[in-house]
Design a protein around this nucleic acid. Structure first.
Lengths: 153, 153
DNA sequence: GTCATTGCAAAGGATTTGCAGTTCC
DNA sequence: GGAACTGCAAATCCTTTGCAATGAC
């Protein structure tokens, strides 16, 4: 989603986040994609507009935005952290072939609960569902080269 | 679950894993606990029996056991890798206070599926559900010291 | 005997920390 | 003006890699 700087300013203020050019650029980059980029990918993107920006600022900013609730962190296995500008409740499809992450918006999944018998006294605040499989492209690739072994974790 | 060395031997052979004392000790340590230890915790535990063992061996072995399907890796956010000797299909409760991980065995959760409309051509092989909340102990601790701010990720 | 496994040391990679200078409010 | 943010460099932590010696089958 394309945001103008006014939108960003308003959002940041509403979440009590100080506005700086670097932050706006990082948030903008995240809002414009659905690809769940890593901190480093965001750094590379933002560097085109702000050649002087440091990785540290990207990490620091992502931390600030996350705590403010403007950004979500998505973790797949132990790969590097990936970020999501979509902060509505949703879940993910993860491709075991190419590691792409696709958003799943499904009200039924949002309603999941643990049975009392299994809850062990926990007070549950939220949950997260990941589906693992192969995307259309990787299924085709597998048919073309079915002999290659694959490591799934 | 307590396993004798005969059990371990049999299991390893069935999964085509070479038997060594170190491997047996690592697997034993994992089978005996439900606490989802990290590689380093396993290293510390096993070192009591095998003072000469190296961290590398623990990592390498966990990789071998994982690929053989004898061990599962559980990832919570970006914390370090944690391992689970329970390889049946199940899900997890995660405490945001003390980071403990508790197994959830629930047939309904095992049956989840993505609606066709959301599947985007993926062929789904499995899924994983994490519930996030506070365990009984951490709920009490929060009542005792409610002023302390908490960072949740 | 052969090849996988082990242990040691060093490298790698993502993220965090310390700190001085700068910027936002 | 003061606190928060930025950029740079160095540190930290988990995990992987290279390699020679050892051990399983």
């Amino acid at each position: 989603m394309r945001l103008n700087s006014q939108d960003i300013h308003t959002r940041f203020r509403r979440h009590a986040v100080r506005v700086t050019r670097q932050r706006a650029a990082i948030y903008q980059a995240l809002a414009e994609t659905t690809s769940h980029p890593t901190a480093n990918e965001l750094y590379q993107t933002v560097k085109r507009q702000h050649p002087m920006i440091s990785r540290n600022t990207v990490y620091y900013t992502l931390g600030v935005l996350r705590q403010a609730g403007l950004v979500q962190e998505v973790n797949v296995g132990h790969e590097v952290a990936r970020f999501d500008g979509n902060v509505t409740v949703h879940h993910h499809l993860i491709c075991l072939g190419c590691s792409q992450i696709v958003d799943v918006m499904d009200e039924a999944l949002n309603q999941l609960a643990v049975s009392d018998g299994q809850a062990r006294g926990f007070r549950i605040l939220g949950h997260r569902v990941e589906f693992h499989g192969y995307c259309a492209g990787c299924q085709r690739a597998k048919l073309d080269a079915p002999q290659r072994s694959r490591q799934e974790h």
